[in-house]
């Protein structure tokens, strides 16, 4: 009975470190922007803390009056996930707004370019042509 928590502790430690490595890789490769990585790094640190400090979860649960410690994990995890999803929605809305504005500007530029082309015949034959689809 005593050996089981140790095995799980090691497993979760390996898992948490692996996750940390994965996040760092993503940042290094430029696939994840730093501002989004903070929350993931914070998550891994929490995971690592609790995989080392075994009694911690129980102690916190007791202090908060939660009788079944794992339910505290679910509560915290679901809360964190919801907050992060809201954050992503905000980012997405902002992005949509930017895409709309860029689309407008490109449309105006295309129009201006087409008008310029019409008024002035191309200077040389190998002038790069930006063609409209």
């Amino acid at each position: 009975m005593e050996s089981l928590p140790i095995v799980i502790q090691i497993l979760s430690l390996i898992g948490a470190l692996g996750f940390m490595y994965f996040i760092t890789r993503l940042i290094v490769m430029g696939k994840l922007r730093e501002e989004y990585s903070f929350i993931w790094i914070a998550c891994t640190i929490i995971l690592i803390v609790f995989s080392i400090w075994r009694k911690g979860l129980e102690q916190i649960s007791l202090a908060l009056g939660v009788f079944y410690p794992p339910s505290l994990i679910f509560l915290a995890a679901i809360f964190a996930i919801i907050i992060f999803l809201v954050h992503l929605s905000v980012v997405n809305s902002k992005m949509q707004q930017s895409v709309k504005e860029l689309t407008h500007e490109i449309a105006f530029l295309r129009k201006e370019l087409a008008e310029l082309r019409q008024n002035e015949p191309p200077v040389s034959v190998d002038m790069p042509l930006v063609t409209e689809p």
Binding site: V99, K100, T103, H104, I106, A107, F108, R110, K111, E132
Partner: peptide, 22 residues
């Protein structure tokens, strides 16, 4: 006619907005 060619589909609101901006 004059025309604007949006490079991304924006829907009626986005298309009209382009027109009003113009």
């Amino acid at each position: 006619c004059l025309y604007l060619n949006l490079p991304v589909n924006l829907g009626i609101g986005g298309a009209m907005h382009a027109g009003y901006k113009y």
